[in-house]
Simulated scan of single mutants.
Amino acid sequence: MSVKLIEESDWEGILKVQAGAYEKLGPEALEVLKCKWRNLPAANFVHAKDKVVDAYLIAHSWNHQVPPKLHTLLPENIHGSILLLHDLAVSNTVAGLGVGSKLVAHLFNAARLMKFAEIRLVSLRESVAFWQKMGFVEDSKVGACPGYGSGAKVMYRVLSACTDAA
């Protein structure tokens, strides 16, 4: 099993993982996901075994404390000092095996190399504890858009050059 940057050939697998992970919220359109990927390809990863995608992480540059809404294309001129972790999804076939943590560790390394000082995300209610274990804290001043469901929280993690380890 390995982690690699997302390539064009990975999208079919990404969409399958997304469909299984977000039955309640509904999957985002391929066009929306690719828009976020194209913004910062070096911060987007898949986990695969035998070339079959079983998890993915999509992140992009952002310039505001409030994350963008779900199901929308990114506006122009959004490059900024914040790395927004848009989505992490893991299929049931590898759930509980540390794959999500592995993808996040790759993102932390990429973020430091690209000189991002902060990563922000919207955590769904059921994943808050996972993100807390990864060093994220709630930003109580910023609310998540209603499309994320009740209990969703905006969270952030400040990166330091020498002390972070996933």
Rank of each mutant, 00 (worst) to 15 (best):
L124Q: 06
L85N: 07
S101Y: 02
N92P: 04
L107M: 09
S127M: 11
A89M: 08
R112G: 11
L124E: 11
G96D: 03
H86D: 14
V104D: 01
V122D: 04
L107N: 04
L85G: 07
R120D: 07
V90F: 05
K102V: 03
E126C: 02
L124C: 12
L124S: 12
V99Q: 01
N109A: 12
G98N: 00
V90G: 04
S123D: 11
V94M: 08
H106N: 15
V104Y: 07
S127F: 05
N92T: 13
S91W: 07
A105S: 14
F116M: 12
L107Q: 02
A110E: 13
S127T: 11
L107S: 06
A95V: 08
A110N: 08
L121F: 06
R125Q: 15
L113E: 15
A111I: 01
V99K: 01
E126W: 01
V99Y: 01
R125D: 15
G100H: 00
L121H: 08
S91Q: 04
L121K: 08
L107F: 12
E118A: 03
L85I: 05
A105T: 12
A117V: 12
A95I: 01
V90H: 05
H86I: 10
L85E: 02
L113P: 00
V90R: 01
F116G: 10
G96A: 05
L97E: 01
F116A: 11
A89L: 09
L103M: 11
H106I: 00
N109R: 12
A117I: 07
A95S: 12
I119M: 05
L85Y: 10
S123P: 06
L85Q: 02
R120E: 08
K115H: 13
V122T: 09
L113N: 14
V99R: 05
M114C: 01
V90M: 09
G96F: 10
L85A: 10
N92E: 15
L113A: 14
G96N: 06
L113V: 14
A110R: 14
V122S: 00
F108I: 08
R112H: 11
R120T: 14
G100K: 00
A89C: 03
S91F: 10
G100W: 03
L124V: 15
V104R: 03
H106T: 07
G96C: 10
H106M: 10
N109V: 12
R125K: 14
T93P: 00
R125P: 00
N92V: 10
L97K: 13
F108L: 05
A110D: 07
M114D: 07
H86F: 02
H86Q: 09
S123K: 04
H106D: 12
E118Q: 14
E126G: 05
M114F: 11
G98L: 02
I119N: 04
F116T: 07
L88H: 05
L97M: 13
R120P: 01
